[in-house]
Design a protein around this nucleic acid. Structure first.
Ligand SMILES: NC(=O)c1ccc[n+]([C@@H]2O[C@H](COP(=O)([O-])OP(=O)(O)OC[C@H]3O[C@@H](n4cnc5c(N)ncnc54)[C@H](O)[C@@H]3O)[C@@H](O)[C@H]2O)c1
Ligand SMILES: NC(=O)c1ccc[n+]([C@@H]2O[C@H](COP(=O)([O-])OP(=O)(O)OC[C@H]3O[C@@H](n4cnc5c(N)ncnc54)[C@H](O)[C@@H]3O)[C@@H](O)[C@H]2O)c1
Lengths: 238, 238
DNA sequence: AAGCATTTGTGCCTTCGTGCACAAAGTTGA
DNA sequence: TCAACTTTGTGCACGAAGGCACAAATGCTT
């Protein structure tokens, strides 16, 4: 039955696999809040309370968690450490991931000094830039210091550090070429800060962070608020 | 017929107002690509070509644009300047928006020096920080220089500059209090970089940018790729 | 002027995501 | 042991979003 193979496989596995994208995007939030609760010595929490701290509805939270398995106790709630462990396991945070940053300008420097990476299981293992002034600079990244490497070293850095995630923080016009070289070097996950649409072959995932886009979305709703009030004022004047 | 009221209302208004969130999130991309095309002296483009440059499907692009009105010409395509103007108008970019940044640390400095804000109709009109070493610092922001103000000046800066958008780039544990003060000062749109869930009253919109979350989503898919291969290797060994 | 080629705008269908409501399951207390 | 209470996990219904396919509309050529 080759047709049903994809759908059937193992039911236990299916539970773990078919996690909706919307749920995956929220799991890191749940994980962060749970870790924070554990620091405050909270051992157990109900879906209602956890949902409130995460800014989601209780029903959505429970449905999200149900995709991972039945890790709650009815009548009680969820054990913080237990649930936190299973989420981190599902997200792949039980092992540290190596990250390479290409483009160590204003934004790149901020990223390197960011402590939120290491605390969530990511380790910056390589810095690359093309500008002579930046290459060779020693940058403090968490515990160890890193030296910015020239672009010629890209393939070597990626393969020797076994990094599978790359961050692009170069100007927009350089991003596609950098992306191509990263993909050729074996990187399959890219976080792109340059305001450009990157084309990649299938099997490579690109996520983008575009601050200007975020502001423009805010501006849209801001203007809509203004427009909604304007007709009222016009009516009042008439 | 109270049931059909929501659906009917005014068709003309509905066209302008009921733009789906997913569409609004893509309009800035279309706008950026159109501006780039205009710079290259392209006057007309079809939905197929524009969609390819924007990384979306042609059907999605056409449906998105149809929410703004009928600005295309059948058999020809879209006039670049004309469409660009209508998108910028819909996004509220015809007028410049003032932006206040709270927290001028590593990330805050990078944001101030970012040229992508001014070029898209946003102007940084205020910088605020609580640390004595940072307050008073002169920072080069676009054309004009800005001086970092102490937190006591927050309300004054917001009201005098008439800023309606604020960016929070403080540590996580300070974000909620900063947020409360911004809202009290009249800010209704907030872009939050601190890894915390902010609670705001209704009518205030918060968008968050969490780099660690983005990396964790990438890590999830990365691990899923590894897990999908593992059973195969086990089968081959057996 | 008329037909051909091209491209838009949209109706329809499928898939995905969300919220409600409740039965099932477990705890607590008597 | 049993009943009352709490909370999870999920079935269902609804709305949002995406993709396909095609009729309508426009330009171009003859
Ligand atoms: N600074 C921000 O706050 C901010 C905000 C949003 C988006 N961005 C985007 O992030 C990117 C980086 O921003 P930034 O402010 O750090 O710019 P930047 O100019 O300060 O830094 C860019 C760095 O990339 C390097 N570089 C240039 N070409 C390269 C190449 N071909 N290969 C490798 N390295 C190269 C430069 O030497 C420089 O060090 C830009 O695309 C920008 O649009 C920045
Ligand atoms: N640096 C990054 O790349 C990065 C990435 C993702 C998220 N973040 C988040 O962005 C925020 C800022 O990051 P950063 O690297 O710039 O940190 P930072 O420590 O360099 O800067 C924080 C700034 O906020 C100021 N501040 C502290 N408390 C304040 C208060 N109560 N009111 C006003 N200002 C206050 C500090 O004086 C400092 O200047 C953090 O929440 C961080 O988690 C940063």
């Amino acid at each position: 039955m080759p047709l049903s193979r994809q759908l059937s496989s193992s039911r236990i596995r299916d539970d773990g696999r078919g996690i909706p994208d919307a749920t995956v995007a929220r799991l890191p939030i749940y994980h962060r809040v749970l870790r924070s609760l554990a620091d405050d010595a909270v051992h157990t929490i109900s879906s209602d309370h956890l949902a409130q701290r995460c800014g989601v509805s209780p029903a959505k939270l429970r449905k999200d968690l149900s995709h991972l398995g039945s890790y709650g106790t009815r009548g009680v709630g969820y054990e913080v450490d237990f649930l936190s462990y299973h989420i981190s396991r599902e997200l792949g945070l039980s092992q540290p991931w190596g990250v390479v940053i290409v483009g160590v300008g204003n934004l790149g420097h901020a990223l390197v000094s960011y402590k939120g990476f290491a605390s969530r299981g990511f380790e910056i293992v390589g810095l690359l830039d093309s500008h002579p002034d930046v290459v060779g600079e020693k940058v403090c990244a968490g515990e160890t210091d890193l030296v910015v490497q020239p672009m010629a070293e890209l393939e070597k850095v990626v393969s020797s550090s076994n990094a599978s995630i790359a961050v692009i923080a170069t100007p927009a016009d350089a991003a596609q070429k950098v992306c191509d070289r990263l993909v050729a070097a074996g990187v399959r996950s890219i976080l792109n800060f340059a305001p450009t649409v990157l084309s990649v072959p299938v099997g490579v995932e690109v996520r983008k962070v575009d601050l200007a886009v975020e502001l423009q979305i805010l501006a849209f709703h801001e203007q809509r608020r203004v427009d909604d009030l304007t007709p009222l004022a016009q009516v009042m004047q008439a």
